[in-house]
């Protein structure tokens, strides 16, 4: 119990202006198809610590973050860590070009205004969320590039709860944004 309280205190600080209400709540689920054509759903990553990053190719700090996330995915992936990037570009073509050049090792999907609203308003990028293994939003970072403090939070989240196998429970799920 003290451990739970300590974690609650640890993750209650920080975060952005508009999405305080998302902190310590279940991350809104959404389904998209990656640029590579694979359908994915956020809930499918339950059991992993997820770094959800809203970014765009025209955003300089975002471009700095992508190689960093690639490195973290390589480094922390075996411990149950997953990066998921949502591009807020208006058009996927510059995103495809960027991906061909940078070879990120995590899925990238295209976002839209609805998805931004779902996450408390993404009215500027980058915006990065850390979601724990239970699917709870623990951090929001507005602006970037994010640094080693975020890597530290990822470590803590990976250590906070043991890896559990994800059990898919719903066969007929409601449509998602």
């Amino acid at each position: 119990m003290p451990c739970v309280l300590a974690l609650a205190l640890l993750f209650s600080a920080g975060g952005g202006h508009a999405a305080e209400s998302l902190l310590n709540r279940t991350a809104p689920d959404f389904a998209r198809t990656t640029l590579g054509g694979t359908p994915i759903r956020l809930a499918d990553f339950r059991g992993k610590v997820v770094l959800l990053n809203f970014w765009a190719t025209w955003c300089a700090p975002c471009r700095v973050e992508i190689p960093r996330f690639t490195e973290w995915q390589r480094q922390f992936g075996p411990q149950g860590f997953q990066v998921l990037a949502v591009s807020m570009d208006d058009d996927p073509s510059p995103v495809r070009t960027f991906v061909q050049r940078m070879h990120p090792n995590f899925p990238i999907v295209m976002g839209d205004a609805r998805l931004g609203e779902l996450y408390g308003g993404v009215l500027g990028v980058p915006v990065t969320f850390l979601i724990d293994r239970s699917g709870i939003v623990r951090r929001r970072y507005d602006g970037g590039p994010v640094g080693q403090d975020v890597a530290g939070q990822i470590h803590r989240l990976l250590d906070a709860t043991p890896t559990r196998p994800h059990i898919a429970v719903a066969l007929s799920r409601p449509p998602l944004p």
Partner: peptide, 21 residues
């Protein structure tokens, strides 16, 4: 700037004029 960000929220009566970059 970005059309997506405009659609999400913009100043009332502001028009979208395209990403000038």
């Amino acid at each position: 700037g970005s059309r997506i960000l405009y659609d999400e929220d913009h100043i009332p009566a502001a028009e979208y004029a395209g990403p000038a970059a």
